[in-house]
């Protein structure tokens, strides 16, 4: 298997590695960069547990080759909080029962982040659409929708 050298900026830090051409970005993030907050939940791009920002846009990192991210910027759940301080979306998830088992949560948070960065005051309908690419088997989604709504309000107030 031929290998290639790539450098990806993950959460503001450059990570270089020699990878196989077939390696998926999600595996690069988890295995090469050791950031295990980004999860794998399927092999058919359905679940969204692997969602990250690639050059500012939410993508399912299991559908992108690591090599395609060469020279680009990736943001993962680990950098949502500012040092010790949780991002308003994260604290809203804690307050409004946006999670139970937490496995879908990193992907949900990244999709919510991307949604709110495009649409700071989404309706409930828009929130549901915004997270429709992310599956959660525990919460039934109501807690997640409520969390995103609360986060949107808080983020507007803070501006």
């Amino acid at each position: 298997m031929s290998k290639i050298n790539i450098t990806v900026e993950i959460n503001g830090q450059k990570k270089s590695a020699e990878v196989e051409g077939r390696m998926l970005l999600v595996h690069f993030i988890r295995e090469s960069a050791g950031l295990t907050g980004t999860h794998v939940g399927c092999d058919s791009t359905n679940c969204g547990a692997c969602a990250v920002l690639l050059d500012g846009r939410a993508v399912k990192s299991c559908t992108v080759l690591a090599a395609q991210a060469n020279g680009r910027k990736v943001v993962t759940v680990e950098s949502l909080s500012d040092g010790g301080k949780l991002h308003p979306i994260q604290s809203a998830f804690l307050e409004r029962h946006g999670l139970q088992c937490g496995y879908c949560t990193p992907g949900m948070l990244m999709s919510a982040y991307w949604l709110l960065s495009r649409n700071p005051s989404p309706t409930e309908e828009e929130i549901r659409k915004g997270i429709a690419g992310n599956l959660c088997r525990c919460t039934g989604y109501q807690g997640i929708v409520d969390s995103v709504k609360l986060a949107a309000e808080r983020m507007k107030e803070a501006k």
Partner: peptide, 14 residues
């Protein structure tokens, strides 16, 4: 739960 929203949970695959 706070660990989980920070992406600091430790599931088997981690």
């Amino acid at each position: 739960t706070e660990k989980l929203v920070r992406g600091k949970g430790v599931y088997v695959d981690d």
